[in-house]
Design a protein around this nucleic acid. Structure first.
Length: 638
RNA sequence: GCUAGCGUAGCUCAACGGUAGAGCACGGGUUUUGUAAACCCGAGGUUGUGGGUUCGAUUCCCACCGCUAGCUCCA
């Protein structure tokens, strides 16, 4: 008779089971429904196969299709499935890595002729064949030497290489039919569980992510437990594509890109208006919070960048200008310029905190392959500010910035966001250990004081200091890094920044770099996609179109337009010789919030017929009523 | 920068080794119209750029430029 062991379930209940029972057996024991839904398990926090046999007392969590970990398991298994199919179709293809990732999975292959999207159908078909065969995923362990022999025997040279990086004496393999792969797992029970999958794109990838290593061919796919979920995901992808800000930018005549300046934006009139709205918001918000708005040159001496440390770290992505007076650089950041302003006079502790800000145009010579729409450009404005303060003021300042950032997200209708604390990079950072520790502690303290959750992102800080990043979540379930707060003890040192304290001595201020929108360009991209181009009224380049039914009302329409313009609304007149249906259609496609229709009836009654872009006909009202309604919405930033 | 793909009218797309065609948009006219597309006519292209192959290239090949996806990068 087998020995009994005690396991603890998530509800803190304790159960006695026979030693050697598997996760699947325990699930069935708890309930038949759970037995059917089990995908994997978690033993003492570590995720394992449902076949995993428990040897001793432990904490057990049953993972079912509903848990997000289950999707990871499924997708990881789908990656194996794809690798197996690929090796059937193209014997000799070498395997690299095949993990699950957010939204799907990939596998990196080393092969002569790379896969293209045309090849997907054949691979998917082969995968389906394996799914129908319902082959079990079998795990077995091997010693390091055995593993080396097995992998060399299969010709998996990359796996043999990888074996060297795996710690421990024994490694695990997973076998599906005649296919096997070095892998930690866990996996689903059998290939039959992988019913809903699709291959999505190909890409290149460096072996182990290192650009000096050989290039591999990566195939991306996604998988779900349910065909319905897969379909939903594919619909979301289609929606993202439909809402692409580049498409919206062209359709709404906001901006364009030209080969004459790759990666730099040409703002058309309507886009420039939206841009100006952000600048207005920038100005009002900063004035309210005691910032001083400054302006610094775009081109400054190369020497300045050497002093700031940017040159060493980022010269490859800086633009330079050579003249007979030497070499100049286009600023990639605003901070050195602000430091020079700080140093332009003697600062007293009474001046601190000194908050300098500027929506400065910066230039970064990004590699050609990375520029993309408004989200990654070579010239953009950061709503950059630098706060110079005493160490004692640091925490208050950080909390103040956090409030500012979160208020801004609310104003722009982003209800969801995530906060991340990034610590010192392993390599290439400047400053002493003590400085880093102090800076990181200040950020942590501020986060604690303000409350709310945050995640720690080890090693992802800037080269001069740790930072808090704000990622806002858009309506298509994507995260965008916008706001950032970075503590910097290094730059004041390099620029020899000082203030005179109450004691009459000179002291070193602390510097905080921060941005709220981040890049205005990127923020506009996020805004457009988030709202699917239907910008809130206060941000709409055209807020109202006044249209007539026939020429008879043209004059009245013109006068209504004039009234709206004097009330401060952005208004356009459409008295073209077109049918009203067409005018409405065009204004709707342009996503203009309000349309006012004037026919004989309205002219006679002295009213306008109001139509909203989504809600349709709202009936008639007086011009004054309508104006009040819209100005109210604008003042509430709706 | 790397891998792959793409580049035909303002836009969306068609055709093709024998010097390009549609819809929308644009211009002119007719129509005076009631809540998402009236009708007629017209104009618009050295098919991204430069080379090569060919009797002939927009089509095939090469290079460059730009774009797209991903990799790497993102102060």
């Amino acid at each position: 008779m087998a020995e009994l062991i005690k396991i603890r379930l998530p509800d803190d209940s304790i159960r006695e089971i026979k030693a050697g029972s598997s996760i699947a057996e325990i699930a069935s024991m708890i309930g038949p429904g759970l037995g059917r839904a089990v995908v994997a398990g978690k033993v003492n926090g570590e995720i394992v196969d449902q076949r995993y046999a428990l040897a001793e007392a432990c904490d057990v969590v049953i993972i079912t299709k509903r848990d997000f970990e289950a999707l990871d398991v499924l997708r990881h298994s789908a990656a194996h499935l794809m690798a197996m199919a690929v090796q059937r179709l193209r014997p000799g293809v070498k395997l690299a890595f095949g993990p699950s990732v957010e939204d799907g999975f990939y596998y990196d292959f080393d092969l002569e002729e790379v896969f293209r999207e045309d090849d997907f159908a054949a691979i998917e078909e082969e995968m389906m064949r394996i799914v129908r065969a319902d082959l079990p995923f079998e795990r077995y362990e091997a010693t390091r030497d055995e593993a080396r022999d097995i992998l060399s025997g299969m010709g998996e040279v990359l796996k043999v290489q990888h074996l060297e990086d795996i710690p421990g004496d024994s490694v695990s393999f997973y076998r599906i039919g005649d296919f096997q792969d070095l892998c930690e797992g866990p996996h689903v029970k059998s290939s039959g569980e992988i019913k809903a999958f699709k291959l999505l794109k190909t890409s290149s990838a460096y072996w182990k992510g290192d650009a000096s290593n050989p290039v591999l061919n990566r195939v991306y796919g996604t998988a779900f437990f349910d065909k319905k979920d897969l379909k939903k995901h594919l619909t979301l992808l289609a929606e993202r594509k439909k809402r692409d800000h580049r498409r919206l930018g062209a359709e709404l005549d906001l901006f364009s890109f030209q080969p004459e300046a790759p990666g730099m934006v040409f703002w058309h009139a309507k886009g420039a208006l939206l841009y100006q709205d952000l600048l207005d918001y920038f100005r009002a918000g900063h004035e309210e919070r005691g910032y001083q708005i400054v302006r610094t040159p775009i081109v400054m001496s190369e020497e300045l960048w050497k002093r700031s440390g940017h040159y060493d770290h980022y010269k490859d992505s800086m633009f330079f200008v050579d003249t007979d007076e030497g070499r100049w650089a286009l600023k990639p950041m605003n901070c050195p310029g602000h430091n020079l302003i700080y140093r332009s006079g003697v600062r007293s502790y009474r001046d601190l905190p000194l908050r300098l800000t500027e929506p400065g145009q910066v230039h970064r010579n990004e590699m050609s392959g990375v520029v993309s729409g408004l989200t990654r450009v070579r010239s953009f404005a950061i709503d950059d500010a630098h706060i110079y303060c005493t160490p004692g003021q640091l925490c208050d300042e950080i909390v103040g910035v956090m409030d500012f950032v979160l208020k801004t997200y609310r104003d722009f209708a982003f209800p969801e966001y995530e906060v991340e604390l990034s610590t010192r990079p392993l390599t290439g950072s400047i400053g002493s250990d003590e400085m880093w520790e102090n800076a990181t502690d200040a950020l942590k303290e501020a986060l604690e004081r303000r409350g709310g959750e945050y995640r720690i992102n080890p090693g992802d800080g800037a080269f001069y200091g740790p930072k808090i990043d704000f990622h806002l979540k858009d309506s298509l379930n994507r995260r965008w890094q916008c706001g950032t707060i970075q503590v910097d003890f290094a730059m004041p040192e390099r620029f020899d920044l000082e203030y005179v304290g109450a004691d009459g001595d000179r002291h070193r201020p602390v510097m905080v770099h921060r941005a709220v929108f981040g890049s205005l360009e990127r923020f506009i991209a996020v805004l457009l996609e988030h709202h699917a181009g239907k910008l809130p009224v206060w941000l709409s380049p055209v807020q109202v179109v006044v249209m007539n039914i026939t020429d008879a009302q043209a004059e009245a329409a013109g006068s209504v337009k004039e009234q709206l313009v004097s009330a401060g609304l952005r208004c356009r007149l459409d008295v073209r010789n077109e049918k009203i249906g067409k005018k409405i259609r065009e204004a709707t496609l342009e996503k203009i919030p309000y349309m006012l229709v004037l026919g004989d009836r309205e002219v006679e009654d002295g009213t306008v017929s109001v139509r909203e872009r989504t809600d349709g006909d709202l009936g008639s009202s007086s011009v004054a009523e309508f104006t009040a309604r819209v100005t109210q919405e604008i003042s509430e930033r709706r």
